[in-house]
Design a binder for these strands. Structure first.
Lengths: 147, 147
DNA sequence: ACAAATGATACCAATATGATATCATTACAT
DNA sequence: ATGTAATGATATCATATTGGTATCATTTGT
C-alpha cells in the first residue's frame, strides 16, 4: 500500500523549498539542498512546470518559481501529476457489469475508503506541510482548519 | 490508487462462494460459477490454502473448504496474502534519517491515512461482505457494528 | 492402474516505477 | 556573434509488480 510515489514525494520537497525562496531558483541549487539526483529533479521540475505549478525561465540565470501560494497548492493535484487520476471511477471492475451483489458491496466499501483518502489529499496543501513542519510539530493537528 | 488487486478481489469471491457451501468444492466448479480463469483461480486457491484460510484435500473428490467462519476472516488478512504487508512501517523514507521536518509532517499525514485504511480493512470481514450483499444492499451502513 | 484432484514452480507479457542521458532551445554576458 | 548557463522535450533503461499461463509432481478414490 503506497499512497504516494517517490516523484510525488520529491515534488512536495521541491515545492516546499521554493516556498521559502522569493528568487528564481535553478536546478543545481535545489539539487544541492534536497539531495535528489540531478536528472531526476530536472524531470520532476519540468513536469511541475508543464502542469502550471512552477513558472520557468530559460537561459542564463533562469530557473523556477512557484506559480501559486503554498496554501493554494493541494497535495491531490501534485500527486495526480505523477500518479495519474485519483478518480474513484476506475475501480477493478470497470469494464464488466457487476457480477454479483456481494462483490458490489465490497466495491462500495473500497470506494468509501478511496473517497476518504481523496478528501485528505484534497484538503492537505503545501502550506499545511510548511506550517506543520516549521513549528516543531506542535501544529500537527491543525491542518484541517479549512475543511 | 488501487487499494486491492485482482488476486485479492478474486480471493474474496472465492471465500464468499465457499461460505455458501458446506461440501468440499473443486476448482472446476468454482471456475464455472465465478468466471475466473482456471489456472489463475487454482493458484489463488492454493495460496489461500497455504495461508490457512482454506483446507484442501487432494486426489479424487478432493477440493477446498473454508477453514474458518466467514465472520472471522478479515479482509486485511486476505489482502496481505496477495499484496504483502499493510504495515505502516514501510514508508518511502525507510532507509534514511528524516531529512527535514517538513517531509516528516507529510509522512505523519500519510501514515495517518494509511492507518485509517488499515482499520477499515481490519474491521471488514467476509461475513460483512456476505451480509451486505445478501439483503439487497439495505444493510449497507451496518457493517461497522463490530468496531 | 487410471483418473481426478491439489501442490509446487517456472515462466511470460504488460505496465509502473525510479532513474539516466541526450539533444534542442532560450537568453544573458562579453 | 559566440560561449555558456539554463530549461524543454524525449528516449532509454533496469527493476518490480501485476495479471495470467503452463508444467510436472503428488495424492487418492475407484
Amino acid at each position: 500500500m503506497k499512497l504516494i510515489t517517490r516523484d510525488t514525494d520529491y515534488a512536495v520537497r521541491i515545492l516546499c523549498y521554493l516556498s521559502g525562496k522569493n528568487e528564481r531558483t535553478a536546478v543545481v541549487e535545489m539539487v544541492r539542498e534536497l539531495k535528489i539526483p540531478t536528472a531526476f529533479l530536472r524531470r520532476i521540475a519540468q513536469r511541475l512546470s508543464r502542469a502550471g505549478m512552477l513558472t520557468s525561465v530559460k537561459g542564463f540565470n533562469g530557473g523556477f518559481t512557484l506559480s501559486a501560494k503554498p496554501r493554494d497548492i493541494r497535495l491531490l493535484d501534485v500527486a495526480e501529476i505523477f500518479q495519474g487520476s485519483f478518480s474513484l471511477n476506475d475501480c477493478l471492475f470497470k469494464r464488466r457489469i457487476c457480477p454479483d451483489r456481494k462483490t458490489c458491496f465490497l466495491r462500495r466499501q473500497i470506494l468509501d475508503i478511496e473517497k476518504y483518502v481523496l478528501d485528505k489529499f484534497t484538503s492537505l496543501t503545501i502550506g499545511d506541510i510548511l506550517a506543520g513542519g516549521s513549528i516543531d510539530g506542535q501544529k500537527k493537528n491543525n491542518q484541517h482548519r479549512r475543511k
